[in-house]
Structure formats: C-alpha cells, structure tokens
Design a protein around this nucleic acid. Structure first.
Length: 417
DNA sequence: TCTGGGGTCCTAGGACCC
DNA sequence: TCTGGGGTCCTAGGACCC
C-alpha cells in the first residue's frame, strides 16, 4: 500500500500556525509581487475566491469579508515543509517528497488506516499543520483517496482504498479531470468521447488510450486498475534545468536596471547549481514586456548560449546572461519580467575541461565557496558582484509579508509570561 | 495601478552517422 | 503501392504537475 500525505491549504496553514487568532477565519496567500491568489483557507474557498485569480480583482471581496491576505513567504513555507517531512520520516520505509506539501510513503511494516490516523495527529501536534492522507495500492489511486479525504468531512482526513470493490466504488463517480495526470486538454478530449469518470477510463480499450493519451495515459489507466507503474522513488534525480525569473514590482526601462536584475537572477541560478553540486552547459536569458497591457507595444526575446566548459561560477554565468541582454535589449520598451535559465546540467565531478580554457577553475571554485559561506552566515547577497547593484528598482512588491518566524533570529516570536 | 514561479515527460521531425 | 536498415542527437511544441 502507498500513502500520500498532503498538507491542507499548505501556505495558508503555515501563516496560521503562528497566528492562531486566524483559525476559522479566511486566509489567502498571494504569489510573488502580490499578483495572484495561490493558497486559500477553507473559509476563503467558501467565499468563492478562486485559485489563480489576480489579487486586484479580489480586493473588494477581501475587504467586505475581512480576508487576511499575505504575501508569500517561502522561507517560512520551506522550513515548515521540512518539519512536516521530518515528522513523517521515522514512520516511513520509503519516502518520496513529491512537492513542498506532499510526500508519497510506504509504511515501515504493515500499513493501516489506524497508523495513518496516528501519523496525521502527530504531524498536527508537532508542526501545527493539518494534513490529509490517502492510502491505496498505487500512487494514482492514493491521489484519488486523498482527494476523497479532503472533500468529505466524514473521512476525518484519512481515506483508504484497498479491495477491488473499494476501487470501483471510489472511482465510479470520480471526474476524469480530477485525476492526477489529466489536465484540461485531455479531460475535454475524453469528454468528447463520452468518458467522464475514472471508472469509464479504466474500462476503455487500452489501444485506444495509448493512441489518444500516449504512454502517459496508458500508465494512468494501469495504475487505476491497481498495477503500479510509478513506484515510490526515494532518490531525487539531479535537476535538468534551473531557473530564476521574476515579474518586476514596477516596469523597468533602462539597460542598467535590466542588467542588475538579470545579473542577480544569474547569480541566483549559479548558487542553486552549487548547492546541488552541479554545473550547467547552457545559459538562457529572456526579457519581456507586460502582456496584459494590450495598448502598449510588446516585445519578447530570449537567447541561449552554449558554454565551452560546464560551470557553476557566478562570474561566468552572469557574463553569459549579460552577453545575451546586450543582443536582445531594445531601449524603446518597458519591461515587466525577466529571467535566467540554466540547462545541460552535469555533476560538478564530471566536468570535461576545455583545451583552451583560460579560467583558473580551482581558484574560482574556492572564491565561490567563500562567497557561499559568507552569505549563508550573514544573509543573501551580502557579498555580491558590483553589477548586481543596490538600486533594485525592479524589486518585488511584498506589502503583506509575514515574519520568518522559524528562520530569522529577529523574527522569532516573543512569549511574555 | 494591479495578472506567479519552477519544474517534468512525451512525441514528431530534422539532421546526421555507418 | 513501391525506393535499405538501424541508429543517435537535438529541438520545438504540447501537456501536465505543484
């Protein structure tokens, strides 16, 4: 049996852990730049606030209903996630951390609903985060189970699908569009062939499924029938791409401001690479104008540079990004978003050196290590390239940011007795 | 005024190799 | 109708996930 542990309304729940006065009240969390709604407490969902809708379109709804609105605080969510996962680990034989708020596990010893309930209580007690758990023979069915656990109050947060009869019962009325791996496109395709429930998909001809939904669909069908196609996978594969991209708090016009932003994003990518012990072979940079401003002239462009020798060096990756900027920058536009992406990622232990390489790689790697150590001790970008600047006109809007209760000394809660 | 960020996998087609 | 057979690598586009 495979279990999935899924945190309820995760970001909203994190905000509530340190603000218990918000329990029972509507809470929403906004995306970067305070742009869209990306998490909602149950009370906020009940008010009809939709996932992914722009904040400015909801302002009235927020005001009338006294909704508690937060800018997203990933330092907090990341640390709370770690706490939840650390609580799960001792119970798990295998654990696959699937996202910031979900993990697939197999239990040490026999799985049972009682154990799942005990785990759920422990996570709530130790971290303050409410979770739901689905238990089933495959990941896909576990996802169905956790969906049921969340939707129906009578489950009290845990739902098990075990026997063939229970599988049929669970998927009989389960909409195909809610299945893990079926998105908007495939759902409407299936609907047009008269398939609207998971049970109908299970019974469809496999050849037909293969032709219409590719092998991905075929695997999904097998998993629904109870055959594991995607086992719980503990080892985290090395990332193939990394990116840092941001919408700007205010539109950016000048070359210098874009250079500062792209330089900072490039350093960010390089730092992520070093953290994973990786190097990249390609650097891509892009800039674009605001697509929502219909009346304004639009411009999007990007380029990719292939590097001679794979690297994770701030200076080299920044240089590549700026070289691209020089090629694609056009002065007459106002830019809203930019980003840097690195690809062709290889382990830093397997870097093929170049015959005509001019960089002293061992000294530079010492330099990067020192920068990482200093910055991890004293704060991000304390030591930076001059080009990263201090202006940051493009900085994110984060008007309703909560404290980093668990990761910053100055933000710790003070309890007065 | 105002609309997020970061990933993965699959397929088809082109280019190239022997 | 039909043109050899067997490969690899790369890219773009589509679809999906959180």
């Amino acid at each position: 049996m495979i279990a999935i542990v899924d945190c309820n309304n995760f970001y909203a729940s994190c905000e509530r852990v340190f603000r218990p006065n918000l329990n029972g009240k509507p809470v929403v969390v906004l995306s970067n730049n305070d742009g869209c709604v990306i998490a909602r407490s149950n009370e906020a969902k009940a008010l009809g606030i939709k996932m992914g809708t722009p904040a400015f379109k909801n302002e009235k709804l927020f005001a009338i209903n006294g909704v508690n609105v937060f800018s997203c605080n990933f330092a907090l969510y990341g640390d709370m996630s770690r706490r939840v996962m650390d609580t799960i680990k001792p119970e798990a034989d295998e654990i696959e951390i699937y996202s910031i708020d979900e993990a697939f596990i197999t239990f040490k010893g026999p799985a049972s609903e009682e154990r799942a309930r005990a785990l759920r209580s422990r996570i709530l007690k130790w971290t303050g985060i409410p979770v739901s758990i689905g238990l089933a023979p495959t990941k896909t069915l576990a996802k169905v189970a956790v969906h049921v656990a969340k939707k129906s109050n009578s489950t009290r947060g845990v739902y098990t699908i075990d026997s063939p009869a229970e599988i049929s019962a669970a998927i009989q009325h389960f909409p195909v569009e809610d299945l893990w791996g079926i998105g908007y496109r495939s759902a409407s395709k299936l609907q047009s062939f008269g398939i609207s429930t998971a049970l109908q998909l299970t019974r469809a001809d496999s050849g037909w499924v293969r032709r219409n939904l590719s092998v991905t669909g075929l695997r999904l069908q097998k998993e629904l029938r109870g055959t594991i196609c995607s086992p719980v996978n503990e080892d985290v594969p090395r990332k193939q791409n990394l990116r840092t991209a941001r919408s700007f708090g205010q539109e950016v016009k000048t070359y210098d401001d874009l250079k500062e932003a792209l330089g900072t994003f490039a350093v960010n990518c390089a730092t992520k690479l070093r953290k994973e012990g990786s190097c990249c072979t390609t650097v891509t940079a892009f800039i674009h104008t605001n697509p929502f401003k219909r009346e304004a002239f639009q411009y999007n462009n990007s380029r990719t540079i292939k590097l001679e020798v794979p690297t994770s060096d701030n200076i080299e990756i920044v240089a590549a990004a700026i070289k691209i900027l020089d090629k694609i920058y056009r002065p007459m536009f106002s830019y809203k978003k930019a980003g840097v992406m690195v690809g062709g990622i290889v382990p830093d232990s397997q870097v093929q050196l170049g015959l005509f390489d001019a960089v002293d790689r061992s000294r530079r790697s010492d330099l990067m290590q020192s920068i990482d150590e200093i910055n991890s001790k004293f704060g991000r970008d304390k030591v930076r390239l001059a080009l990263q600047g201090f202006d940051r006109k493009w900085r994110l809007r984060q008007e309703r940011l909560s404290p980093c209760y668990t990761t910053r000394f100055t933000d710790f809660l003070t309890v007065k007795i």
